[in-house]
Design a protein around this nucleic acid. Structure first.
Lengths: 212, 212
DNA sequence: GTGATCTGGCACGGTTCGGTGTCAGTTTGC
DNA sequence: GCAAACTGACACCGAACCGTGCCAGATCAC
């Protein structure tokens, strides 16, 4: 009994250590969650369906997650990270504020259009699940607002508006872009992406032009 | 005889005909749904809880609704009707566009603050439930966009922008106000209502000022 | 009053799902 | 080769919930 004393370490299997195997299984579960939550929805998803999509069994699910809500949080973090990354990548190319915003919006809408599962998880499935998930949603939305504030901060006249008012404005801009994207992907007849980018750009620049 | 307008089958009970009794029970169920969905959420709600809150039994639930999703649709319609009514009432007092928008926003935020159940059902619980509910959400959001378009139509230069662009702008404005309200009620430390009204007003007027 | 109808409370069967246990087969270290 | 550890498939149990049926008491028409 316990002659080897390898409780914590374990041994290699298929050329990978225990820690690496666990992480690979966890990653497969998160990918499967994005697929299932993003196509069939969170409410109709079950642990068994997730495991079947991941090619694993329930035993490995509970190895990495306490329950389906924990997995939803992980899937939500995965897709919002992807969104945040694409926005920053799109904004990098611009030389001035106008170009940066147009690039960020274009990259954002392209990502949303490219993978409908992302928008479904980020905009629909995550709401109304439970207190913890709601907190994550509010916190994530707040982080996008913070990102907007950081980008526009050096370009505006900070003496013209209070911090609180500025934050409310940034929240409104995020909301404008989000609802435009949401209605865009939900509508049956997809209007061209240039159209939604132009609309979002008009709103953002109209508000920012009052702050310079 | 039969001067009370009864159905072919059925009789009066407690001074009301069968049809009237059914409608009263249905209204009680919708009110109970607003209470339960708006406080504990749709996901944790059950038919039994709804019936207990309404002071009725399941038998009367299935008399008026096919399932919990149908009840959610009815509760959603109830709260969005209340919101729409409050917005129109607030806009009526203004003499010009600026005053109308300020009045509409003030009335909207007051209603949201007055009854948190409304915003919870309208902004959170309704998303990601199922295809029918999603359709209702998209349709309702579209109706708010239509309302915005009707209000601003006589005030703007229609030759400056295309219909499609105008609709995208209106969608963005609705999204801005919605997310400001959502983050407002979700935040622990409630900032004063005048602050959120001012922020929303700034955004709406900044966009509209480019269209005159 | 009397019988028919309406009401509300209870409970039952059926289903689904979460979480755990078991066990045979496979892979690795020695 | 062999024992120990890892893997995957399946079975099981309990809980929750939906939808329906039943029944005793209240209420109304006659």
């Amino acid at each position: 009994m316990n002659s080897t004393g390898q409780d914590a370490t374990g041994r290699t299997y298929r050329g990978a250590g225990p820690q690496q195997r666990r992480e690979e299984r966890r990653a497969r579960l998160v990918d499967a969650a994005v697929e299932v939550f993003g196509t069939s929805g969170y409410r109709s998803a079950t642990v068994d369906k997730i495991c079947a999509a991941a090619g694993l069994t329930k035993r490995y699910f509970y190895e990495s997650f306490d329950g389906s809500e924990a997995l939803l949080l992980a899937a939500y973090a995965s897709v919002t990270d992807r969104l945040r990354e694409s926005i920053l990548r799109g904004a990098d190319g611009g030389v001035d504020l106008d170009e940066k915003i147009r690039g960020a919006l274009a990259s954002f809408f392209e990502t949303v259009a490219d993978d409908p599962r992302i928008s479904r998880i980020a905009f629909q499935e995550v709401l109304g699940v439970g207190p913890e998930v709601d907190d994550a949603y509010r916190s994530c939305t707040g982080s996008f607002v913070d990102a907007v504030l950081i980008v526009i901060d050096p370009e505006i006249d900070r003496t013209a508006v209070s911090d609180l008012h500025l934050r409310t404005l940034a929240t409104g801009l995020v909301g404008a872009v989000l609802l435009i994207a949401q209605q865009w992907v939900l509508s049956d007849n997809h209007q061209p992406i240039e159209s939604v980018i132009a609309g979002a750009h008009t709103i953002v620049m109209a508000v920012l032009s009052e702050l310079v």
